[in-house]
Design a protein around this nucleic acid. Sequence first.
DNA 1: CGCGTTCGTTAGACGTTATAACGTCCAGCC
DNA 2: GGCTGGACGTTATAACGTCTAACGAACGCG
Lengths: 216, 216
Amino acid sequence: MAAADTSSPRERYRAQVREEIKEHAREQIATAGASALSLNAISKRMGMSGPALYRYFASRDALITELVKDAYRSLAGTFHDCAAAGGDLPALARALRDWALADPHRYFLVYGTPVPGYRAPEDTTLIAAEIMSVLLAACAAEDAPDAAAAGLDEHLAQHRTWAEDPADPPARLRRALLCWTRLHGVLSLELAGHFTGMGLDPSVLYDAEVRSLAAR
Amino acid sequence: MAAADTSSPRERYRAQVREEIKEHAREQIATAGASALSLNAISKRMGMSGPALYRYFASRDALITELVKDAYRSLAGTFHDCAAAGGDLPALARALRDWALADPHRYFLVYGTPVPGYRAPEDTTLIAAEIMSVLLAACAAEDAPDAAAAGLDEHLAQHRTWAEDPADPPARLRRALLCWTRLHGVLSLELAGHFTGMGLDPSVLYDAEVRSLAAR
DNA sequence: CGCGTTCGTTAGACGTTATAACGTCCAGCC
DNA sequence: GGCTGGACGTTATAACGTCTAACGAACGCG
């Protein structure tokens, strides 16, 4: 924060140009997907020449990585805001779906097909942990032991590095995990258009899954 | 002539070359993902020159589309085989996971991030319906009405174009749908590597979800 | 004012998809 | 046997992409 105060005009201009580049990149990704992102097209639309962008981003992958990080931060922010406003688990689920539908390609930037050579930087895993933390806090309701999940609970009791609070019972970890995987299951298939050919409304399916998760 | 019945040697050679091209493409996709598929690299590895491939596939997208169709057919085949061997729902789930783990990029070819301009051809939707049909048949067990899914059942009763058998109760359609979305939720996150940073075993989570689906 | 860092430029190497035009070879037909 | 048409593979070329190298200009700082 204080560093932003004392930033030189040079650095402020640099940050502004970087933001403008990312803005164009986001727009391009939203219309054509991440694989179609072209530094050349961005530079042309900004009135600059191609290699000028390399003053601001080391490579195309670096730009995409930055956008992935922004997407993570954006999702974590909406989750945090929703929880701060007293949102319970269904509210969080709604916020997640709204966030995803607002920009499907941003969702796929986070949860979509991974690029083989790509390794997630440390930041993203930290933000992912933060997202899980908010979800975990919303799963604070009573948890009855589930016979079908006994093995999972035992496994979670031993591998809980992603849940910082050691007081969380395994049943709560399990519920947060299930929220994540089940909502992602419906949402990703919806965003990929796999329901359109079947003529059914994804929101109904999503809501049913949310109710099922909240009511247990 | 009788040549219309049996393929001419010309056509057999053509089919063989097409298959060899697809073989190299599959290998390339398995190691570097679909976005890294290069017709140039394939042609070089086959000892041919670049544009020669255009005699066999109209474009790069056409080749990828063919591979997507093959992946669909492969999944439908393993599903069909599993069901023909008397496999129940857990067996189908295991077959799905084995199929996905055998070649993760093939799974993403079917269920991964969609390309914006891409429209699924009619064949793939037909095969997708066949896959759902097998899944539906495996969900033939008794179905108790679920309070949280009443709205979904009603919606499914009205939009059931993807289930050809009109005798299927909505509860069974719902269960098949939930199998699909929940298993995909765990599987896609696993294949994308989102669990590796959390230090937990995806197979335990997957098995728990399978048990939860089978025991209801 | 001078100097150095940063910025943006052009030139170019290299790879990609895709088309056009040109040989080449084989199958079938007279 | 010889001819002809079509399929095949080639080289050449265009257009676009990332990214590096080298150069000039502009800006801020001492």
